[in-house]
Amino acid sequence: MTAAQMEHEITLTVNGFAVSERVEARRHLADFLREDLGLTGTHIGCEHGVCGACTVLVDGEITRSCLTLAVQCEGKSVTTIEGISDSGAVADLQEAFRARNALQCGYCTPGMVITASVLLDAEEMPDREEIRDHISGNYCRCTGYHAIVDAVETTLKARAEAGR
């Protein structure tokens, strides 16, 4: 049982590695990843849950790391853009982003890739409207989204072809 303290020891899994750190209760997960673990691929945009730049996976579900306290991640498994990049899990999606110019400044891209990554395993292939709906919580101020939807759709189609 955790006592009511301002600081807590937490143990969790980040990108497959066990991590134990002492954190302030007020430390949100995005700052924990960036400042305490040096995983700066998780970007911070608005810091109140609107822009999606800080999206990570917590126990496999897309999650706003700015709206999640690090202390709440005790025992959980967190995956960041570094994790899914290094594992090669989204290499095809990343290549499609590059090929289709689905990024310009790149600030939103880690969150965008993480958010889109959970679509790649969906049982039913989403159409463009559903892709747009799914990424609607991730702001991009450069591309106008069209190229991002193209990149996600291209990857989904290629995976569906390969799986046939």
Binding site: G49, G52, T55, V58, E61, I62, T63, R64, L67, T68, T115, V118, H134, S136, G137, N138
Partner: peptide, 8 residues
């Protein structure tokens, strides 16, 4: 909201 908000 959005999918990531609905997760939690």
């Amino acid at each position: 909201a959005h999918a990531a908000i609905r997760s939690r």
